[in-house]
Amino acid sequence: MEIDDADRRILRILQSDSSLPLEEIGARAGLSRNACWRRIRAMEAAGVVRGRVALIDPSAVGCPLTAFIHLRAPHPSPDWVKTLAEVTAPMPEILSVYRLSGDLGFLLKAQIAGMAAYDSLYQTLISRVDLAEISASFVLENLKDSTALPV
C-alpha cells in the first residue's frame, strides 16, 4: 500500500490516541469523517495498522520490573529458534523476542513483578530451552519508552 501525507497524519493521530472518535481524527487530519474511515479501513486491510491497544502502566498491574534477557544458543539452528518461539509464545511476561546480529544471539524483553518472578522465568527458560548462555539486565530508570513510529 502506498502511504500518502493524509495517511501519515492519520497514523500519527492514531499512535497518540486511537480511542478518538472518527470525527476528531478526521478534523485533526484535515479530512471528512468518511474519508478518514475509508483510509483507516484500507490501512487495516493492508496490515499497516495491525491493531489498536490500550497502553497500561506496568506498576499499576503488579509488574514494575523490566528485564532484558540475553540468550545464546549452543548450536543455532532453525529448530532451536522454533523451540524458543514455541516456549516463549504462551508466556505473557515475555513481551518481545528478538534474533540479533552479532555475538549476543537473542534478546527477550520481559515485564515482571520482581526478582522472584525473574527467577521463576529463568528456571522455566533453562528447563525448556537448551542454552549456551543466559544473562539479564534490569531497567533502573526508564528515560524514554514509546510505541509511536516516525511516520
Rank of each mutant, 00 (worst) to 15 (best):
A110Y: 00
H70S: 14
I94N: 05
Q15R: 05
S101V: 14
S32W: 06
L125E: 01
A73Q: 07
A27I: 04
S120L: 09
A110Q: 03
G114K: 05
N34F: 09
A42F: 05
G62D: 06
A113K: 07
F138K: 04
E86V: 02
G30T: 09
R8M: 10
E24K: 13
F68Q: 11
M115Q: 11
V61E: 04
D5Q: 12
A60H: 06
W37K: 13
S18R: 03
L31N: 02
R39A: 05
R72S: 15
G47R: 10
V48T: 12
I112R: 01
V97I: 12
R41G: 05
Q15F: 06
R8L: 10
L22W: 00
M91L: 15
L71K: 00
A89W: 03
T83Q: 15
A132H: 07
T88S: 01
L95E: 11
D79L: 08
L100Y: 05
W37I: 01
P78H: 13
H70T: 14
R52K: 15
L121D: 01
A6S: 08
R99L: 12
I40P: 01
V49S: 06
D79C: 07
T83N: 09
A89K: 09
V97Q: 05
L125I: 07
A136T: 07
A73T: 07
H75N: 10
H75K: 15
S18K: 01
V61K: 03
F106M: 07
R9N: 13
S101L: 13
A67Q: 00
L84I: 00
G30C: 06
R9G: 02
A132I: 08
L104C: 09
I112V: 07
R128Q: 13
R39S: 03
W37T: 02
A6I: 04
R128D: 05
P78R: 13
R12T: 12
S32Y: 09
Y98R: 12
G47C: 10
A27Q: 14
P74R: 11
S101M: 11
R8E: 05
S59F: 10
S59G: 12
V53Y: 15
V129A: 08
S146Y: 08
D103M: 11
R128I: 02
A132D: 10
S59M: 06
V53D: 11
I25R: 02
R38L: 13
I134W: 01
Y98C: 06
V81P: 02
I126A: 10
V61Y: 13
V49H: 04
I10A: 01
I25W: 02
S16H: 10
V87L: 08
E93A: 13
I40G: 02
L55P: 02
S127P: 04
P76K: 07
I112L: 13
L11E: 00
Q111V: 13
A42R: 15
L84N: 01
L22A: 07
M91F: 03
W80I: 04
L71S: 01
D79E: 14
L71T: 02
R41K: 15
L31S: 06
S77D: 14
R9T: 07
W37Q: 10
I126F: 10
I13W: 03
L108K: 02
Q15D: 10
M91H: 06
L143R: 15
G47D: 06
I13F: 03
A89D: 11
P78V: 12
